[in-house]
Amino acid sequence: MPPRFRIFITLLLLTFCTLHAKSDATRIEFYYGIAEGNYLIGDLKGAANGVEQMLKIDADYVPALTLKTRIKIDQGEPQVALESADHAISLEPEILEHLLLKALVLGNMNRRDDAIAVIEQVMQAAPIDGDDYRVASKLLGLLLMAEGDWDNAAETFNQIYLDNPETAAISLELASEAYLEKAGNALNQGDTSAAVDAITQALEVHQQQLGEISFKQRTALRMMRA
């Protein structure tokens, strides 16, 4: 074959590969838009179908893997969700959001000790004033509440507020909720004194806070304690 023909064929193949890659990228973006839209409106089956189409094109497409994880959590398939989260972590181990997603899956599997270990890993790696740290702290608090460790849960939520006052409203609300859960548990066990003490703890969360929301919370909690 003459050299000029070999060069021509090589250039033609390179052009074809480039166009094919662009075509695949466009198709993936198209499927992702559909899958994410379906997920947001609650069409989990449609979202799952879109994700599978993406992964057929590129099995290592991380946005599809993380979306698949969320879908499978909602569909009650935690083992599949965990495998998808682990796959995303293996591809982008430096992205802490993937670890938080894995912790969420583990929490849904009632593997709370494992979930807490992953969250603590994130908190050690993340900047204390960053979004990953705040999300990890909130998730840790919620898991502690699920474990019935209300005091540590409330302390975790309080610490979020101390680290970043901008999150005061949600952090204080969650801390108060932890103590109210503690009070409810005490009442279920017939321990009225412990329930009153827990409500007092919830009241103290809002005691030094200004604003209408905290005022209403203090009023409601005082009425409950009475």
Rank of each mutant, 00 (worst) to 15 (best):
G42S: 11
Q201P: 01
P2Y: 07
L143D: 04
G42P: 06
L142C: 03
I199C: 02
N110A: 13
I213Q: 13
A183S: 15
E52L: 03
Q207L: 04
M123W: 00
A194V: 03
R218Y: 03
Q209E: 15
P63N: 14
A183F: 01
R4Q: 14
D86W: 00
L100S: 08
S193G: 07
H20F: 11
S137N: 05
Y32T: 09
G76C: 08
D131T: 15
P93Q: 11
E147C: 02
R27A: 14
I41S: 10
D74N: 11
G190L: 05
N108Q: 15
A35W: 01
E29A: 14
E204C: 00
D149K: 12
E92S: 09
A59D: 15
Y31G: 09
Q124T: 15
W150L: 00
D151T: 12
K216H: 10
Y179G: 06
D113S: 13
G130V: 08
N164K: 07
F5V: 15
D191H: 02
L104D: 12
L106H: 03
Q79A: 14
L180M: 13
H98W: 04
E177L: 03
M123R: 08
Q207E: 15
L221A: 10
M145F: 01
G107C: 07
M123D: 13
M145C: 15
T192E: 12
K138M: 11
D149C: 01
I95E: 11
I57L: 13
R218M: 11
E177M: 05
F16S: 14
Y39K: 04
V205K: 02
E173N: 12
A194R: 09
E181P: 00
Y31E: 14
D129E: 13
I116S: 06
L144A: 08
G76A: 09
E29K: 10
I71N: 05
L140D: 06
D43V: 04
L91S: 13
G42R: 04
M54Q: 12
I160M: 08
S171R: 03
V62Y: 01
G37T: 11
L142A: 14
V196I: 13
S23K: 08
L99E: 07
L55C: 09
S90D: 15
Q159W: 01
S171H: 04
G184C: 04
L106I: 05
A88C: 09
D132P: 01
D129Q: 06
A117K: 12
E92G: 03
D114I: 01
L82T: 07
R111G: 04
G37F: 03
F16Y: 12
N185V: 06
F157S: 07
P78V: 02
A169F: 06
N108F: 02
T69K: 01
H98M: 03
I95Y: 05
Q53S: 14
F215P: 00
I95V: 15
A35D: 12
A64R: 02
Q217I: 00
I7F: 00
A168I: 05
S176T: 14
D131E: 14
G190H: 09
N158Q: 13
N108H: 12
R222P: 00
R70Y: 02
Y39W: 09
A146Q: 15
E52M: 06
D191Q: 07
L172E: 13
Q201D: 15
S84I: 05
A25I: 03
Q124R: 10
D74K: 11
L19R: 09
D197G: 01
A195K: 10
A81C: 07
A25Y: 04
I213C: 02
A21I: 07
L13P: 05
V80Q: 09
R218T: 09
A146N: 15
